[in-house]
Nucleic acid binder design. Structure first.
Lengths: 215, 215
DNA sequence: TCCATGTCACTGGTTGGACCAGTTGAGACG
DNA sequence: CGTCTCAACTGGTCCAACCAGTGACATGGA
């Protein structure tokens, strides 16, 4: 609410915001509400607050966290940034996902390998698109778990949340879901403890959903 | 403050927290302070708040954002997780950094290519470790910019913040900084628009700082 | 004239109390 | 015994006041 009104419009980096009391009067809200909003902006890395001194806008490109992607996507953003935002999201998904597949091939225990292979087989055997999508999501969830990398898990959480914010349906990753053999090959590479093949297979698979740019 | 007291100890997923009023009395703080803390936890994905209903703990492994890494690292964590946390951080750094180098080789404009090469040369020509570290940081900053991927930029922001939280000094990436020729090779690959070589060079360079595990 | 100093009007930080608005469950009623 | 109502929760919001730092301005002495 306040975030969009503040940053995306005016208020360049290093400018001072109005005081909390001024903002509360200007926005017609109590100082507490303004304060909570400001604290959230601070947590997001958009502003820096210091007692006594004034609250200043930070350069979000340099201090913002990954969660900012959601905020940017939420507020119907700049048209040129819109596609770039999606491309950024899916490029990161491809990069992280491919490395997660590599690590899963290295670190998964026997049970995880078996489950990943079983889910891939179940996916390939199903014709229903919705069912395939559901299995595909769980499959990747298990791969991320098997990779045993907390940063990957958390980053992917943010990325899928971002896909929801951008209101993307299953068709966005349709090119991945329809290709049963490629998914099976990926699962086999992970189950067979072949990190290089797993990485390559995942990379190729995930790359299909990265939007093209006319550069 | 409150985050550590709540999650890391007890309070498993899907359990209900005490009411705001109860917490304020229990912690000796006003309800407003408790409320601000809860809002921050909500933003971090640790809890879900709904008016009328009770505030419940969410499964942070499934709903938390990347910023959670900082929070976990801040509160002297579980010893076994400590090393895993660092490994996760540096693995992600390597994965993102390598792909950023690849994209930079594809997308950088002439000025960026020239600057990246110039900085690499300046780094290789300097003997002082601190100076090399400073140049190295800026060099990667330019690579990320050239990759033109907002998600990478924001994720890296979080990762470097995490390195600060874990109080890691320059020696952590010493194996990268000392190798001038490797850095030069990376810069040349980017400047020469060779994405595959840039990716491989960055990957090899960044992989050196990933802590080993005795698996 | 110039610099050190103290004062004071700001800034954010915190608290208490009150009320509004949903949710939930226990008890009353059919 | 099933259903409905209502009261006691929950979080959401607001007002008013005070504490604690900051910074600039006015004032004094060198």
């Amino acid at each position: 609410m306040l975030r969009g009104a503040i940053l995306d419009g005016s208020y360049g980096p290093d400018t001072a915001l109005p005081s909390e009391r001024a903002l509360s009067e200007e926005l017609g809200a109590s100082r507490h509400a303004v304060r909570e909003a400001l604290k959230r902006l601070q947590q997001a890395g958009l502003i820096s607050i210091s007692q006594g001194g004034s609250t200043r806008v930070r350069d979000w490109r340099r201090h913002g966290g990954l969660d900012l992607m959601l905020a940017l996507g939420a507020e119907g953003e700049l048209p040129p940034e819109g596609l770039g935002l999606m491309r950024s999201l899916f490029e990161m998904r491809a990069s992280i996902g491919a490395d997660a597949a590599r690590l899963a091939a290295l670190r998964a225990d026997a049970a995880a390998r078996a489950e990943i292979e079983a889910r891939a087989a179940a996916l390939a055997a199903t014709g229903d698109l919705a069912a395939r999508t559901a299995i595909y999501d769980v499959l990747w969830d298990r791969v991320i778990d098997a990779a045993d990398n907390l940063a990957y898990r958390l980053a992917l959480n943010t990325l899928v949340a971002g896909q929801h914010v951008l209101s993307l349906d299953a068709s966005t990753v349709g090119a991945e879901i329809v290709d049963g053999p490629a998914i099976l090959a990926l699962a086999h590479a992970i189950a067979g403890a072949d990190p290089d093949r797993a990485h390559a297979a995942a990379r190729e698979l995930l790359q299909r959903s990265v939007p093209e740019t006319t550069s």
